[in-house]
Simulated scan of single mutants.
Amino acid sequence: MITCTVRYELDPDQLEAFEAYAKFWLHKIPEMGGTHHGYHMPFEGPNDIAYCHFSFPSLAAYEDYRDRMRADPECQRAYAHAQATRCIRRYDRSFTRPLMDGASADELGL
């Protein structure tokens, strides 16, 4: 499994527009074979930073999603919305491998 984390720098005056954009991807990622772990919106602290996390079974599955996403009319509408509202100033993506299963200290030999 591979997880993509996106750090967004937002226009604080366009949070409502960004939330509409985010809600679309919460719906679309699972439809395209991924698992969305949610958006984390500004609350306390900086009012212009948000994060999202979503996973695909493999890097190949993620790359396939990216190809299909570029051709998908709904995805293109979402991108056009973000561009028209200028709700996203910039974003950075990083990829990680999630560690999801815990173990006791005894099981780990600690």
Rank of each mutant, 00 (worst) to 15 (best):
M1W: 07
D11E: 04
F54W: 05
S104N: 02
F43S: 02
P73M: 11
F18L: 12
P98Y: 04
M1I: 13
A17K: 09
R77Y: 10
S94K: 15
W25A: 00
Q76G: 10
Y79A: 12
Q76A: 14
E16C: 00
A82S: 15
A20S: 10
D48E: 14
F56A: 07
D64V: 12
A61Y: 02
E107W: 01
C52D: 09
F56E: 08
F43I: 03
Y8A: 03
C75P: 04
A61D: 14
P57I: 14
T85G: 06
D92W: 09
T35Q: 07
K23P: 09
K23M: 06
V6A: 06
Q83S: 13
E74V: 12
C87M: 09
D106V: 14
R70H: 14
E44K: 01
D64N: 13
N47C: 05
I88L: 09
R68L: 12
A60C: 10
C4P: 08
A22M: 02
Y51D: 11
C87R: 01
S94T: 15
L26D: 00
E9F: 04
T85L: 07
H37W: 01
Y51W: 13
M32Y: 02
M32R: 09
L26E: 09
D67A: 11
D64K: 09
Y21C: 01
L59V: 15
C75Y: 08
E31L: 13
F24M: 10
D72M: 05
Y51C: 08
R86C: 05
D48G: 04
Q14M: 09
E63Q: 13
A50E: 00
H81G: 03
E19A: 02
R77F: 06
E107P: 05
C87T: 11
A105D: 11
K28E: 03
I2H: 08
W25F: 11
K28L: 05
L59I: 15
M41V: 05
P98T: 06
S55F: 03
F43Q: 00
M41A: 02
A78K: 01
G38P: 02
H40L: 02
A80D: 12
L59H: 13
Y62R: 11
D106T: 08
H53F: 02
G109C: 09
R89H: 15
K23T: 07
G45W: 06
C52T: 10
R93A: 06
H40W: 11
A61V: 08
E74F: 08
F54V: 00
S104W: 01
D92L: 14
W25L: 05
C52G: 03
G34S: 03
A82P: 04
Q14H: 11
E9S: 15
E107Y: 05
A71Y: 06
L108V: 09
A105F: 10
A78T: 02
K28R: 05
R77T: 15
D48V: 08
G45Y: 10
G102A: 15
M41E: 00
I49G: 00
A50I: 02
F18I: 04
D72C: 09
H36T: 08
I88V: 14
P12G: 07
W25T: 07
A103L: 12
Q76H: 06
